[in-house]
Amino acid sequence: MKTALVECRDVSFGYGTRTVLQGISLGIAEADFVGVIGPNGAGKSTLIKVLSGVLRPSEGVVNLSGADMRSLSRKKVAAELAVVQQEEASDFSFTVTEEVMMGRAPHHGGLYFEDHSDRVIVQEAMDKTRVTHLAERRIETLSGGERQRVRIARALAQQPKILFLDEPTNHLDLYAQLSLIELMRNINREGIAIFIVSHDINFMCESCAHLKILHETSFYCQGSPRDVITEENLAHSFNIKALVDVNPITAAPRMTPLARLENAP
């Protein structure tokens, strides 16, 4: 069995008295491709923050490469684990190269000027994410899909062992979604573990090897997409009546929503 990069056992978290996560256990190993789906408010984004050490669990321990996350500095965490989150608004517009170069921060001190190896790593990340032609453009002039590729390039420049993506399909058109799947597969093929949370079920079925449904603070079920995406599970966790069949080309399960359910079974 492969060693787990990120692992947690019986982790709980709450804001004040409101419990958001309870009894969460999971392990992500090298080259894994894991996805978590769940309806809005199920705690998906919180899960990413807890697993990446931004939030401390109220109970349980999160380990990164076998070490307790709490004992690691942010910098050490960022050298192994990169997070592509949803865009944060900023009034300061860097160029694409500058933005991607920030991914080198975990490997440097408070003041540094990039050396040759930094430039090579950044160039590689930009090539992989196909943003090289945008190098001198300012972030604010790019489209949503392009900005996301820049964020992924920045994450790759961190040279992480594991990549987290939070709702990566938000605001992406279908072309951009398809290129995202292709990009994530390429990254995963190089041995980088990928962990995605999203509510976009079909996208997750196409991309992930392993799926978990987060429902009301804990995992409801997990397994291969074919095992997880069933009409019963969707009714239970998403409260919808859906038709589930198989994509004839990719053989991944395919979901078509039909109606909402008034009462959960």
Binding site: S52, V54, R74, A78, E88, F92, M102, A105, P106, G110
Partner: peptide
């Protein structure tokens, strides 16, 4: 301040991003 110039760069991109890029 200048000895932390790169950290200031991270900070202006956004708190969460900065945190994910290794900043306390």
């Amino acid at each position: 301040i200048y000895l932390n110039a790169n950290r200031l760069n991270l900070l202006i991109v956004g708190d969460d991003t900065a945190s994910h890029l290794g900043l306390n």
